[in-house]
Computed example of a mutant assay.
Amino acid sequence: MTTSIHPLDDPNSDPFEVARAAAAQIAEKTGVKSHRIALTLGSGWAKAADVMGETVAEIPASEVVGFSAPAVEGHVGTLRSVALPDGSHALIIGARTHFYEGHGVRRVVHSVRTAAAAGAKVMVLTNGAGGIKSHWSPGTPVLISDHLNLTAASPLEGATFIDLTDLYSTRLRDLARSVKPDLDEGVYVQFRGPHYETPAEVQMAKTMGGHIVGMSTALEAIAAREAGMEILGFSLITNLAAGISDSPLSHDEVIQAGKDAESVIGDMLAKVVVAL
């Protein structure tokens, strides 16, 4: 019995060609030719899709080439096309492949490359994460101002040199603050995972200038910049990072913090998207 190789696992495949094929399938299955903006909705952020506009189509991500069902509770596993008030459409990505799943960077950033191929000029990346600033309580949304990529990997292949200055767009962060003026911001640190960081690792991240720790987003942001998109990043602080608080870390508590905050942050994010 033989099984077919995943198209992004074949070293001879062109990941951008796979993304274009995925975008064509999304256009066919949703009936929407182009999407102006794309959002990857991490833990706690999914409700935004329900309130930002009318859903015109929703499909299982696993039906689109290159995508897999999500391996993490808190991700919905669908691709959704939402009609925005200005008549354009948003592509809502509820299927995120995390680096710690071991499938390689190509599959981690496939959703971003597909969004670009689907016409998106803005990529909104969201996540649930641990906070290093002690005054951030669980349920606090913060803007990502920059990142530290501690995965020892990159989505760029070969001699591809991409400028990451202003990776998380100052313009878009200013627009977000026009909706919610008290939004704080910080530097996101992506670790490989899936284990949570030790207190010593959190202190290392803090010393290096980090304020938020998690297991996603940075690799996706790099791929989005390579694809020419403007990027807006949000973290939902689901817990204080290890050693910042005396409490042990729990994935169940992370999921619950996201559920408790989702209606408030979903409404906020929907308003930001309308303003973009």
Score class of each variant (00 low, 15 high):
224 A>W: 00
223 A>G: 11
206 K>H: 13
216 S>Q: 04
216 S>M: 09
212 I>T: 02
211 H>C: 12
218 A>F: 05
220 E>I: 10
199 P>L: 04
213 V>F: 00
212 I>K: 02
225 R>Y: 06
208 M>C: 14
199 P>N: 05
227 A>P: 04
224 A>D: 01
197 E>R: 12
215 M>T: 11
213 V>A: 00
213 V>P: 00
213 V>T: 03
202 V>R: 00
223 A>W: 00
199 P>M: 02
227 A>K: 01
228 G>S: 11
219 L>I: 04
191 F>I: 01
205 A>F: 04
226 E>A: 08
224 A>N: 04
221 A>H: 07
217 T>D: 10
208 M>I: 06
228 G>P: 13
201 E>M: 08
200 A>R: 04
221 A>I: 02
191 F>S: 02
225 R>L: 02
211 H>G: 15
217 T>I: 10
203 Q>M: 13
210 G>S: 07
223 A>Y: 01
224 A>T: 00
207 T>E: 12
228 G>T: 06
203 Q>W: 05
213 V>D: 01
213 V>W: 00
208 M>V: 08
219 L>T: 03
197 E>S: 14
210 G>H: 03
219 L>C: 12
200 A>K: 05
196 Y>A: 08
190 Q>P: 14
202 V>C: 04
219 L>G: 07
217 T>A: 07
195 H>M: 15
190 Q>V: 07
197 E>M: 12
199 P>F: 05
226 E>I: 00
221 A>M: 04
207 T>P: 10
205 A>Q: 06
207 T>M: 15
210 G>C: 07
209 G>Q: 08
200 A>E: 05
222 I>R: 01
192 R>V: 12
226 E>F: 01
203 Q>C: 02
207 T>N: 13
205 A>I: 07
209 G>R: 07
210 G>Y: 03
218 A>E: 05
190 Q>K: 09
202 V>N: 01
204 M>S: 14
195 H>P: 10
197 E>P: 15
209 G>L: 07
221 A>W: 02
217 T>L: 14
199 P>W: 04
201 E>R: 09
216 S>C: 12
217 T>E: 07
191 F>M: 11
224 A>S: 06
189 V>M: 04
209 G>K: 05
208 M>A: 14
218 A>K: 00
203 Q>H: 14
223 A>P: 11
197 E>I: 02
225 R>C: 07
201 E>Y: 10
193 G>R: 07
208 M>D: 10
212 I>N: 07
210 G>T: 01
204 M>D: 13
216 S>F: 12
195 H>S: 15
212 I>E: 08
207 T>V: 14
204 M>Q: 11
202 V>K: 00
211 H>I: 08
203 Q>L: 10
196 Y>F: 15
227 A>H: 01
218 A>H: 02
214 G>R: 04
223 A>I: 01
201 E>T: 09
201 E>C: 12
215 M>K: 08
210 G>K: 02
189 V>G: 05
209 G>H: 08
